[in-house]
Amino acid sequence: MSPFDDANFCFPVQPGLLANDRVKLTLMTPTRHASAFFHATSAHPDIYAHMPSGPFATEADFVTFLQQKALADPAFLILAIIDKTQPPSAEDDEGALAGMMSFFDTSTIHLSTEIGYVVTLPPFRRTHVTTNAVGLMLQYAFTAEADGGMGLRRVQWKANSVNAASIRVAQRLGFRDEGLLRWHMVFRDGVQKGKVGNGRPLPKGSLDGDVGRDTVVLGLCWDEWEGGVRETVSELMVRTV
């Protein structure tokens, strides 16, 4: 039985394409992963400073997020990152829960998706985890459908313009800067939630506590992947400590 049998994703998922000898990506489920993930992030609300979701006040709030996104939207696939270099855990028989990543805004018509909702838990930062997890997602995205992949033409990455770490990760893995979306998002009650925005005053009549965000758009396309990015990503995955 595949861990993705319960996924409501618009593409079939072959687990073998989302694992290597150090990292595995599996369907994040409320029953197996939510409690550990919530408790690992609850002391670090800054994790959500650049994201439209979170921080989550309770474990039930995080479960609701998973249900509304992963289970209700076929364009959305939330993945738990498992570090296979660590001992087995309650969350996975092959290793420790190391974070979360997602495919979203996925289109079977336009053959595109976005990688986002990227959270690497604090103990696993600056290790092999993030590079390998994103690399596995890219391999699955650009592998032909006949070989079990998604056969996509484009993968997108959008980041808060002040989130230099997220932008560096994408650039390092071959994404190209494509532009800046000014005033792309409004974080409702962003001040209270610790959101980081563009720092510019909001228009007259905006609600107290709202925060405005500019967004950097980066993209990676199939021809760039075939033209050398695949090899670069594979080398980075092997080389990363």
Score class of each variant (00 low, 15 high):
80 A>S: 08
81 I>W: 11
82 I>A: 03
82 I>W: 04
82 I>C: 07
82 I>G: 01
83 D>Y: 09
83 D>L: 12
84 K>H: 10
84 K>S: 06
84 K>T: 13
85 T>W: 02
85 T>A: 09
86 Q>F: 04
86 Q>N: 06
87 P>H: 02
87 P>T: 04
88 P>N: 11
90 A>G: 15
91 E>C: 08
91 E>M: 09
94 E>R: 12
94 E>S: 15
94 E>Q: 15
97 L>S: 05
97 L>F: 13
97 L>Q: 05
98 A>Q: 07
99 G>N: 08
99 G>P: 01
99 G>W: 05
100 M>V: 01
101 M>Q: 12
103 F>M: 10
103 F>I: 15
104 F>V: 06
105 D>S: 11
105 D>Y: 15
105 D>P: 06
106 T>D: 02
107 S>T: 02
107 S>M: 04
107 S>D: 01
107 S>R: 02
112 S>N: 14
112 S>Q: 14
112 S>D: 05
112 S>L: 08
113 T>S: 07
113 T>C: 03
117 Y>V: 05
118 V>H: 03
119 V>G: 08
120 T>C: 12
120 T>I: 15
120 T>S: 10
121 L>F: 00
122 P>N: 07
123 P>E: 11
123 P>D: 11
124 F>W: 13
125 R>A: 11
126 R>N: 12
126 R>S: 15
127 T>L: 10
129 V>K: 00
130 T>Q: 12
130 T>P: 06
132 N>G: 03
132 N>I: 10
133 A>Y: 04
133 A>K: 01
135 G>N: 06
138 L>R: 04
138 L>Y: 04
139 Q>K: 15
139 Q>V: 06
140 Y>P: 00
141 A>K: 03
143 T>N: 07
143 T>K: 08
143 T>P: 01
144 A>R: 13
145 E>L: 09
145 E>R: 15
146 A>F: 14
146 A>T: 15
147 D>H: 14
150 M>P: 06
151 G>E: 00
151 G>L: 00
152 L>C: 10
152 L>G: 04
153 R>C: 05
155 V>Y: 01
155 V>I: 10
157 W>P: 02
158 K>D: 01
158 K>Y: 05
158 K>I: 12
159 A>W: 03
159 A>E: 05
160 N>K: 02
160 N>E: 01
160 N>W: 05
161 S>K: 11
162 V>N: 07
163 N>I: 14
163 N>Y: 06
164 A>V: 14
164 A>C: 10
164 A>G: 07
165 A>P: 11
165 A>Q: 15
167 I>V: 13
168 R>G: 09
168 R>I: 14
169 V>G: 01
170 A>S: 11
173 L>V: 12
173 L>T: 06
174 G>I: 02
175 F>H: 01
175 F>P: 07
176 R>I: 12
176 R>P: 04
176 R>A: 15
177 D>H: 15
177 D>V: 15
177 D>W: 15
178 E>W: 11
180 L>T: 12
182 R>G: 08
183 W>V: 02
184 H>P: 03
184 H>I: 02
185 M>Q: 11
186 V>A: 10
187 F>D: 00
